[in-house]
Design a binder for these strands. Structure first.
Lengths: 157, 157
DNA sequence: AATTAATAGTTGTTTTTGTAACTAACAAGG
DNA sequence: CCTTGTTAGTTACAAAAACAACTATTAATT
């Protein structure tokens, strides 16, 4: 319609990123929410443990940039549902090592499969090299270091 | 770190998009939050009114894909602070036309300037044609129609 | 060793959000 | 008109997030 000036909301990156994130998350959200009653931070913690194996809450927080309060509550919920188990570090008894239980592993594998197929579905809407660029740009915006798989990244899976 | 399988969180679009959106929104958020005590939905409503002029809550909701409840609360807050004024539609007395007050216009212009300079700052981290592609992809993911430039305008909804 | 500072994680309290039920106005069919 | 259905917007209540204060343990300073 008639815009009053040259500013366009649809070109404003923070706005667009939030909208795209919301829309793109919706379908996946339904899975972890309906199937496992998980919250956003819970699947994030679950996935970090699934991908990286044993970690402390602090390490998850650093890697995912999630505040310790959120991690703590997400872990409490996951532990209550026997998806993660905790064990104190003997050297530093403040720290707690977290890992998935077999039930947690199962949930992770299930959701990971969903994630992969959903991701493929999203990516299929674009050319592969466009997707690669999108990922690189998003990682840069999110201050996530590039995966150091091999030489300068070119292709992914 | 040693990943246990071929799944990578940093390549998972919903995750990446959320992370990028959070990070990219942080600096701008500080402005509307600290300067005007606004919430996310409040600046969205303010911007829609600033960009498009008079609108009803329903129209804002459709355009921004924000639920009417959120709009209602955001408008109530903005009206309370005398940033927007409301007037009933005489033909349909359910509908309410919203518009910015002079104070609202001033806040909008101020925040718009912030938005533009912040956006330019973000965009400067990439090549212009990369940014254009990013915007196009994000709009597609967010189901936002392309801004009318070459193609004839298409009326939806 | 005693004091102070720092760190890992938790808990409590206040805001914000999400969901659904609600009111008021209009619309259509009988 | 009168029922039934729809729409615009609000409100109430439950769920979740944000922020800050707290405990327990370790590290640093004197």
């Amino acid at each position: 319609m008639t815009e009053k000036d040259d500013f366009s909301l649809q070109d404003f990156l923070p706005f667009l990123l939030n909208r795209a994130a919301e829309d793109a998350s919706l379908a996946f959200q339904a899975h972890y929410k309906n199937r496992y009653g998980m919250l956003r931070n819970e699947w994030r913690v679950l996935f970090h443990l699934g991908v990286f194996g044993q970690m402390t809450a602090k390490e998850i927080g650093q890697r995912a940039k999630i505040h310790k309060t959120k991690i703590s509550r997400a872990v409490a919920k996951l532990a209550e549902r026997r998806f993660v188990s905790r064990s104190r570090d003997e050297k530093d008894r403040r720290a707690e090592h977290l890992r998935l239980t077999p039930a947690g592993e199962a949930a992770y594998r299930d959701l990971r499969a969903e994630a992969q197929s959903y991701d493929a579905q999203l990516a299929a809407r674009f050319d592969p090299q466009e997707v690669a660029l999108l990922l690189r740009m998003l990682r840069k915006l999110a201050s996530i270091e590039e995966p150091v798989s091999s030489a300068p990244e070119r292709d992914r899976d």
